[in-house]
Amino acid sequence: MITWQIILYILYAGVLYSLLVIGFGFILRSVKFFNVAYGGAFLVGGYMMFLFYRVLVISFIPAIFLSLFISGLYLFLSHKFIFSFLINRKANNFVLLIASFGFLTATSSVLGMIFGSQATIIARRLSDIHSLNIFGGTLNIVEALAIIIIFTLICIFAFIYFKTHFGRVIRAVEDDSEVAELVGIPKGKIFSQLFFIGGALAGLGGIIQGLNVGIVPASGLLFMLPVIVISVLGGIRSFWGGIIGAFILAIAQKLTVVFFGGSWEQAVPFVILIIVLLVRPEGILKK
């Protein structure tokens, strides 16, 4: 029973990390820097959902789409007004990283001032998030739906990425954005689109987290750390590597809690990061 329950929880944690790492990966592979502002889109998604669904009492589905649009827009605008300038000026990756970090910090401070620094719970009543019995194990409705929706999204994005024209364009930009530009691919436009898609994916993560256990302004950074570790772990150049990395981290974290106790859970990503950097710095899946 316990084993099955832990497997279900690992599955949930794994898909949530996968969702975040897909969006993060699109941005990372194209602009080639760790865009920590991605965590800001996670927060914006969650808090906008809180605003629309719980404060303004808009019904569930429209509220989700509105929030996803705004979180996408958030990252899109961050690119348009900050990062594209820096990239055009040939700022090095370190400058971009610091800029994105500053952007995340500013975002979480502003959200903290508006919504308070305590956990914000999106559900109107926590008892609405009822639990389901799954072959003897338990998941609540948010976790179960998240697993289904994210699996679908992974398939859709894998299809787009590997099978469509747009996917080929993305891969070309990822491969070498300068050469891609030479053959007539509008680099800036593709970057903008990827930032929007990435922002919406991060926003969905924030919504799921906020519905399930609530988000705090610090969650942005708290989630960025494992996402960065996963990207390095799976191989930052690979789509599937990120997803494999997500599940490895989820398994490692949950098993650590079961065998060694909860106080070690936050340390696991970093132990894994150090081991990977020592043993296989290029990640599990090379391109």
Binding site: I6, Y9, V213, A218, G262
Partner: peptide
């Protein structure tokens, strides 16, 4: 006897062990 990070909001693994 188990503990959790004060910033964490995921106590599911700890609680699953307790349930057993």
């Amino acid at each position: 006897s188990d503990s959790f990070d004060p910033a964490s909001k995921d106590l599911k693994a700890q609680l699953t062990t307790i349930k057993g």
